[in-house]
Nucleic acid binder design. Structure first.
Lengths: 192, 192
DNA sequence: CTTATTTGATAACAAATGTTATCGTCTACC
DNA sequence: GGTAGACGATAACATTTGTTATCAAATAAG
């Protein structure tokens, strides 16, 4: 699982192994809640196999804000970083194989590597990039119609359209499942 | 104009005056465009008197993303910081008295004060805060109805409701002017 | 293999929102 | 003081989207 990243980090083999050993492998079924709303996040997950969604409760309906797939790391960033109660739920969609690392170990590693400016910059960049992605998603709610958002999703994140059940996609696009069905059927008819 | 901030900065009088002298006072009528869409931002503005909106063109209709009032600083942050073409237009709403400072002078000052960690942190915090505000605004588009957004606006930013023409508020809330009128009239009737 | 659950499509109706047009008021400017 | 333009309210109608209900297909669990 981790060997593929080995050459990206300037650590001694000893350090590398020490860090790898902080991770714990688990297998969970579909629809496993990894972090409840209101809970304080203590674990960061990396996906070996499977798929996770992050959502929050909005007047009884769930609104999906992000999807994650293989090799991505997942947490309620605000809750994990600042140890606030999480505003979101983290939940598997498919049966998944995950590796988790505790907040304590992450802090320890971050402390140890903070002298390596190359890594620090990469980390800050990662956080920024995620923030930008988030912004872009929100932005599209204001700018684009649901139909346009769906077309963009097909183009830019085909994995989501292919692997995720449609009602989660509807909740990600901010429309009802019925309306997403309508959108799809209109698109098909337009092509004819 | 600047004396009110004097005690917030740990500079010698000499440095303070040098920095103050980087600012240029201008008076402009209402609806003056301070930064065009696509232009690279070279000036940061501080408002002594008046009111500014930042908006972008979305399929021919303008969509206001932010309002600024007295004592706030205004720029297309992305364009000013990274010298990209601006995605937004910066435009006065009322006749305004502004102070501007050039990108060059800002860079010079930032370079000089980067050794003062207190100031650096305050600056980073400011940027973060603005990003959070932005996020919060976007978020409300997904979570809340236009009516709810309008009620929140009255509560949290009464200045906007009081000073800004209604069609700009409609464009800020993401609804047509007609619909904002409807929302207002429904609210009035409900109170009776 | 059988059954329960999940998923997705569709219809019928309701509610929200946009569009266009008209009118009245207010304000800036000559 | 008169006039053009900006601003806001309202009506009538169109379009988009949500809601509820029903059915069919796919999938998972026993």
């Amino acid at each position: 699982m981790f060997n593929q990243f080995r050459n990206k980090f300037p650590f001694t083999d000893e350090k590398w192994n020490e860090y790898i050993n902080c991770f714990n492998r688990i297998e969970v079924p579909a629809k496993t809640v990894l972090l409840e709303e209101g809970e304080i996040s203590k674990k960061l997950f990396i996906i070996e196999k499977g798929c996770i969604r992050v959502w929050f409760n909005n007047n009884g309906k769930d609104l999906t804000s992000q999807f994650f797939f293989e090799n991505q790391s997942v947490a309620s960033i605000e809750s994990f970083m600042k140890q606030f109660p999480s505003p979101v739920v983290v939940e598997t969609i498919e049966p998944s194989v995950l590796w988790w690392i505790s907040k304590k170990d992450v802090d320890k590693i971050l402390e140890e590597i903070k002298e390596i400016p190359e890594l620090r910059d990469r980390l800050i960049n990662m956080l920024f990039q995620r923030t930008f992605d988030y912004m872009k998603h929100f932005f599209s709610f204001i700018k684009d119609s649901p139909t346009q958002r769906y077309l963009d999703l097909i183009k830019e994140k085909p994995q989501i359209v292919q692997r995720v059940p449609q009602h989660y996609i509807a909740s990600y696009l901010g429309v009802s499942t019925v309306h997403l069905s309508r959108i799809k059927s209109k698109l098909v008819n337009k092509k004819d």
